[in-house]
Amino acid sequence: MFEAHTLLVGLILVDFMLLASSRLGSCIRQVAFQGLLLGLLSLAEHAGWGAPWRSWALALGSIGVKAVLFPWLLRRALRDADVRREMEPFVGFTASILVGVVMLGASLWIGTRLPLPAGVVSPLLVPVALFTMLVGLFLIVARRKAITQVLGYLVVENGIYLFGLTLAEDAPLSVELGVLLDAFVAVFIMGIMIYQINREFDHIDADRLTSLRDEAS
């Protein structure tokens, strides 16, 4: 149904778009799209329409949570917090892309060195998983806003899920654990959103007001 190889290349491109995009809204859209690709990938692993019901449930669950629920929550938080829509990076976008190239090269190299279980669908799977995790970590470190840290965490989680896919056939237990981790992440994100983000943006606003008063006096 969907070729695993093409989906993996799509995942790499989404990672680069995440590094390059300057808008919070488009970042959320890209993370959602990444979730969709992940769901399709876990179907592609198991020969498309003929996949066992367990794979279907896993794919639909992951698409529902990652491509619909999370983006909706994040978008709502963005609207409620009423913040500026720019990313405000510590590392510029062009530099981010170049860092991304280095990270991709490193993950491709590590991917050739890791001993893999037999029957992995595509040799790209492990490098893409590593690359996605690295991009997530980079987003957490190199972007200023609390909401981008949530996005970065989601991307790291996507990478871990991808890594789990390499073992999905042999060990169904690890898949279930992955879904459990997803649920945990959902709760975790809501906690962070309600607490951290509101506090962060209130803080920024208060700062601005202080500096205005100082300059006036």
């Binding site: 190889h5 290349v9 790499i12 491109l13 680069f16 390059a20 976008f93 062009t94 892309i97 170049l98 991304g100 190239v101 991709l104 491709l108 050739t112 595509s122 040799p123 790209l124």
Partner: peptide, 22 residues
């Protein structure tokens, strides 16, 4: 504009990596 052109370079490099090994 430089970001766009660097992205084009990245796309080409990725294409090369895919052609070469995977």
């Amino acid at each position: 504009v430089p970001a766009l052109l660097v992205s084009a370079g990245v796309l080409a490099a990725l294409g090369l990596a895919l052609m070469a090994e995977w």
